[in-house]
Design a protein around this nucleic acid. Sequence first.
DNA 1: ACTTTTGTAGAGTGATTAGTCGGTCAGTAT
DNA 2: ATACTGACCGACTAATCACTCTACAAAAGT
Lengths: 187, 187
Amino acid sequence: MDKRAKILAAALKLLVEQGFHSTPTSAIAKAAGVANGTLFHYFKTKDELILGLYADIKKDSLRKILQGIEGQQSVKAKVKTIWYNSINWSITEKEKHNFKQQFMHSPYATQLSQEDLEEELKLFSDMIKEGIEKKILKDIPIDLIYHITHYQMLAIVSYLNLNPHLIEDADFYELAFELFWDNIKRV
Amino acid sequence: MDKRAKILAAALKLLVEQGFHSTPTSAIAKAAGVANGTLFHYFKTKDELILGLYADIKKDSLRKILQGIEGQQSVKAKVKTIWYNSINWSITEKEKHNFKQQFMHSPYATQLSQEDLEEELKLFSDMIKEGIEKKILKDIPIDLIYHITHYQMLAIVSYLNLNPHLIEDADFYELAFELFWDNIKRV
DNA sequence: ACTTTTGTAGAGTGATTAGTCGGTCAGTAT
DNA sequence: ATACTGACCGACTAATCACTCTACAAAAGT
């Protein structure tokens, strides 16, 4: 019933399929089952819709990625949970993942604020700092660890999308996580 | 004088700046200093221009990345050269790198053939196979190694773009390469 | 010399697009 | 009851876009 949500859902689907600029707002409105004017009632411009969709998706992603994290866990346990959650989100929310990727690599990304770009890093930097101080993680810059981590997860997601039969394979996740952990843990 | 090249150069610049669909062909022609009709003389459609630009950039990238590779080198030496070449290309040809990334994450990527997607993997798979057989690289699927490698390089490129003072820092490259090599070498 | 091909120009066209506008209608406060 | 608010509609518009067309000049082939 919530038309705003319907518009966002239709926008997600069509924008991923057809790209940002070759998806007319009229098509989004039609797919959402609302009138053209209604779309512009909720979003002043098409750009505002796209930016709003990105913000929504990012919020959803962060919420799901942090699930099950508690302060008293070991660094490795926390990292493992985040790693699993991240990959799981990207696989189950494939459209959202693709939108995020498309958005981040498009000129829209330049519209994001510095804070917006650093939000995820800041969320994890305490944990990484803790890992370095406890001599569990390698003593390299925090944001370098974050970058490597982030892209390693993207690699696994991309690999899983090319080899979908592995999505249900718990052994593969074990292998991939250990591979990942070996890369950032202190030797 | 070569107008085709001028059109491609102008297209690269504008498409990266403004995105695929919000860059009019008329703007590309204008920036290239040619008439509208000339653009369509060289490229039947706008899509053909974009696809052609991608093909050009990919060729340039592969050529530069393979420079200095010889069969008799050790696996580590070859990997190191490719790693340096790749990162160097992405940093010096920033616009081309950005175009490639934007293209690969846009719906245009679905127009690529299977071969096109696997070309780079195939170029490296013999080397990776050699590394696994000689027990230098981890015994995990070749395409998984390739994926991890590829994304690790993207991570470094992204990190360097955020920390441009490191671009001239040879020590950083050493650190980053060893980090990378530790991840794929057999322990 | 002549014919054909190729490169170049730029005005023109039909389709499409983001966004507007005037208005209906249901709900809610007064 | 009355006034007000905001959701919602869809026809409309001004602008823009990809691409075409006609024309012409330079080169290349014969």
